[in-house]
Design a protein around this nucleic acid. Structure first.
Lengths: 110, 110
DNA sequence: CAGTATCCAGAGCGATACTG
DNA sequence: CAGTATCGCTCTGGATACTG
């Protein structure tokens, strides 16, 4: 979502526009617990390919949700962490976590 | 998401599995304000095609998030409304609404 | 009105190879 | 290690036409 684009009227739509996809939410989940390296993210998110991880990281960086720190070392080291904006999404991810926990309980007792 | 599938370990992943896609969230948003007919949903969600709306409604019905009531009339009338499970997602959508409102404010003051 | 069926274009994604 | 580049397939989703 480009900052130059007109915002949708509905705030829910704005939010889904920024975190519409499954991978972005899982990346946020990883980064909520602190700064992570590229490889750590890749290992932490089951089923994500390198390409898709890179794509989503770039997109989220563009949207201002995360930040990227490159260390001039060999071998290279790149760290990702939440911006203030990204961090402000914490309540949403927590809601999703809470709901998921409740759902797990429900399924178990069926 | 099939009930027969094993649940992901992470509750966040469970939740995104059920509402991973943009349209589903917007359908939930519509139904949070009460029962809606097919046409009302179509009109209320800008940019959604009939096909995609139908697909997502079926999927959400399968997941137990919404329910479907068909009236034996001519012309046909079909109503959709949230199940208890679907209704329990309300806090998540509200979080998204709150965040979106804050984001709108932020963008305006830039 | 609320769908289903069909076709087709394009996006998304995995696999693989290469690089600073 | 953390990418980029390219290929090829799948699958989503739009457009259109038809129906109980």
């Amino acid at each position: 979502m480009d900052k130059n684009k007109v915002l949708p009227f509905c705030p829910v739509e704005t939010t889904v526009g920024l975190i519409s996809n499954k991978w972005k939410v899982l990346i946020l989940r990883e980064l909520l617990s602190g700064t992570k390296r590229f490889g750590e993210l890749k290992n932490g998110i089951e089923g994500i390919s390198q390409k898709v991880l890179t794509q989503n990281l770039r997109s989220m960086e563009n949207d201002g949700l995360i930040e990227r720190q490159v260390y001039a070392e060999v071998p290279p080291k790149v760290e990702y962490f939440l911006s203030d904006l990204g961090n402000s999404l914490r309540p949403i991810i927590n809601s999703m976590k809470e709901w998921g926990l409740g759902y797990h309980e429900m399924v178990k007792n069926t």
